[in-house]
Amino acid sequence: MFDAYHWINEPKQWQCEDGTLSVVTDDKTDFWRHTWYGFERFSGHIFATEVPEDFTFQVKVCADFHTLYDQAGIMFMADDRHWLKAGIEFNDGTPAIGSVLTLGHSDWATGIFTGNPHEFWLRLTRKGDSLRLQYSSDGYHWPLLRLCYFPAGAAKIGVMCCTPERSGLSVDFLDIALTPPANKALHDLS
């Protein structure tokens, strides 16, 4: 199932069993470029595959976030200066849903997650130079998290996790699916 996927910053502990990818994060791993903090980091774990054209990628993520900046979700990237990550990130004492778009410099958009942060879904659809990012707390209802520009061209899509302040976050990625792009209207939340 994961034959076309490969690691970027492979963690010391991981396994694939019955279609589930299980990962335990290494110490002080992160993704960030410049903005506010001034530093550059690209040490988090990514399990990804090449995507030359449009697609929809979907995954279920299960983890127990409890330390500042614990995070897990998806990563779409052209290189270490051009990427989008999204998922749950532990921030200000609570798990939040959010995304970071990096086109030379990182931004950070985050908000309250009203579902169970230990189990959530993410979906990313690419059409040309546009990305539509959605999340779900039940696997059925998919609110928009972000709509953004991203340069067209070959890239990678997959899952990511990192722990900037520690090691040891256990994450399970389930129901990973890469399909042709879902051709749904922007406000179709199914």
Rank of each mutant, 00 (worst) to 15 (best):
M1R: 12
Y5P: 05
H6N: 09
W7I: 03
I8Q: 15
I8G: 09
E10V: 11
Q13E: 15
Q13T: 14
W14P: 13
C16N: 07
G19L: 02
T20Q: 06
L21F: 04
S22E: 12
D26R: 02
D27Q: 11
D27K: 12
K28Y: 10
T29C: 03
T29K: 09
T29P: 05
Y37I: 10
G38E: 08
F39Q: 07
F39P: 03
R41W: 03
R41Q: 15
F42S: 14
H45P: 06
H45G: 05
I46M: 14
I46D: 05
I46R: 06
E50S: 14
E50L: 13
V51T: 15
P52D: 08
P52C: 06
V61P: 07
C62N: 12
A63F: 08
D64S: 15
F65S: 10
L68P: 00
Q71E: 12
M75S: 04
M77D: 07
M77N: 06
A78F: 05
D80W: 02
A86Q: 04
A86N: 02
A86P: 09
G87N: 09
E89A: 10
N91K: 11
D92G: 11
G93T: 11
G93L: 05
T94G: 10
P95S: 13
S99F: 03
L101N: 04
L101W: 00
G104W: 04
G104Y: 03
S106D: 05
S106H: 00
G111A: 02
F113D: 11
T114F: 07
N116T: 11
E119L: 11
E119Q: 12
F120M: 08
L122V: 11
R123H: 06
R123Y: 01
L124M: 11
L124P: 11
T125D: 04
D129W: 01
D129T: 07
D129R: 11
S130T: 14
S130K: 13
L131C: 11
L131H: 02
L133Y: 03
S136T: 10
Y140M: 06
W142R: 15
L144M: 15
Y149D: 09
G153P: 09
I157T: 11
V159F: 02
V159R: 00
C161I: 07
R166V: 08
R166Q: 14
L169N: 08
D172I: 03
D172A: 08
D175K: 03
T179G: 00
P180T: 04
N183I: 02
K184Q: 13
H187T: 12
L189I: 08
S190Y: 04
